[in-house]
């Protein structure tokens, strides 16, 4: 008789915290650096208490200087540490663009493998929290163009644990994007034991036959909810949570599209040049004649950011009802 392995119910933010804690316990080469990660314990209290347990040498309160948070982590990684750099909010990652794109992602390539850059850059992203212009952006499209960089966008506590472990183990740099609206909203069972989930493997959260919906982050939850609603109407929707936007699980997408013959991509990042554009192009190249309907992308609008005022934020974000509506229209197409 199989015995269920011990597990705990936790929120997304607790999963980040406990996975980081285990990593620090497991490996004394692991260090955390970022703004307010020490005494404050990070603005979401993710690292609360870490500085007492692991010391200020490993839990490093940095100056407000994002380029060097990443740049110093690159040097640490090249010299054998396992840095986990934190950018307080994804909106503040722009000053570090050079170090992420020009340095971290190219370390292995430019030295022909002599040096590598095993590091994780974690940052909370995303809206729906009244974060206004500078505390709500999605940044994945700015980085997913970059070969050499892996980008993870987990949506559940279990995926956070498995993927964050995989990111920390990974010999190359990983950008780990945590949707902050899901931090306390999403709760689930997480096994106590150490495990990893391979970066680049999507998760089919609901099987279906009439439409493929690809999403990630907060909208992985909303699109699943919408698809479940549609079940009551006898509409069968397959939902894929990408979990990583690069590498991207092209086989999961293509296999699903070959079965359902219709594709809807839903993401919070704005539409133009977003992750959905790449998926559309890939499916058009690989499986155009499998399609029974035009590919559709349901994305947030191409404006500089969501506004602070509630109507502006609501207008920007996509409701579960809108997702269901779009799904219905596509199934019936």
């Amino acid at each position: 008789m199989a015995v269920a392995s011990p597990s705990k119910v936790m929120t997304n933010v607790e999963a980040v915290r406990s996975t980081l804690y285990d990593a620090l316990k497991r490996d004394d080469k692991a260090v955390i650096l970022g703004e307010d990660v020490g005494n404050r314990g990070n603005v979401f209290l993710i690292t609360k208490g870490f500085i007492e347990e692991f010391g200020p040498e490993r839990i490093i309160d940095t100056p407000i200087a994002e380029a060097s948070i990443v740049g110093i982590a690159v040097g640490m990684a090249m010299e054998g540490l396992r840095p986990i750099a934190e950018i307080q909010f994804a909106d503040f990652i722009y000053p570090a663009f050079n170090q992420i794109v020009g340095e971290a992602a190219k370390t292995r390539y430019r030295s022909n493998g002599e040096y590598t850059c095993p590091m994780v850059i974690r940052t909370p992203y995303g809206g729906g929290v009244r974060g206004a212009l500078s505390h709500s952006v999605s940044v994945e499209a700015l980085f997913y163009h970059v070969p050499g960089l892996k980008i993870v966008v987990p949506s559940t506590p279990r995926d956070i644990k498995g993927l964050l472990n995989a990111a920390i183990e990974d010999p190359d740099p990983v950008l780990f994007l945590e949707h902050k609206r899901t931090y306390r909203l999403i709760k689930d069972d997480v096994p106590d034991e150490y495990f990893t989930i391979p970066i680049g493997k999507a998760n089919i959260t609901q099987e279906g036959t009439q439409l493929t919906v690809v999403s990630y982050g907060l909208y992985a939850h909303q699109s699943l909810e919408a698809a479940r609603k549609l079940q009551d109407e006898n509409l069968s929707v397959e939902v894929i949570d990408l979990r990583s936007v690069r590498p991207m699980d092209r086989n999961a997408i293509l296999d699903s599209v070959r079965k359902t013959h219709k594709l809807l991509i839903i993401h919070e990042d704005n539409k133009f040049g977003g992750v959905g554009a790449e998926i559309s192009a890939m499916v058009a190249e690989e499986a155009l004649f499998e399609l029974d309907a035009p590919i559709r992308r349901l994305c947030c609008p191409d404006v500089p950011a969501m506004g602070y005022a509630l109507p502006l934020e609501e207008e920007y974000m996509i409701s579960t009802d809108r997702m269901a509506e779009e799904m219905r229209a596509m199934v019936r197409f």
């Binding site: 740049g71 110093i72 040097g75 090249m78 540490l81 020009g102 340095e103 002599e114």
Partner: peptide, 23 residues
């Protein structure tokens, strides 16, 4: 260390390596 041609990008790497030595 490996370097790029990007001006001053290496200074932070040197400092990160020095941090590792100190740690």
């Amino acid at each position: 260390f490996t370097i790029s041609s990007i001006i001053a990008a290496q200074t932070a790497h040197a400092v990160g390596a020095a941090y590792a030595i100190k740690l």
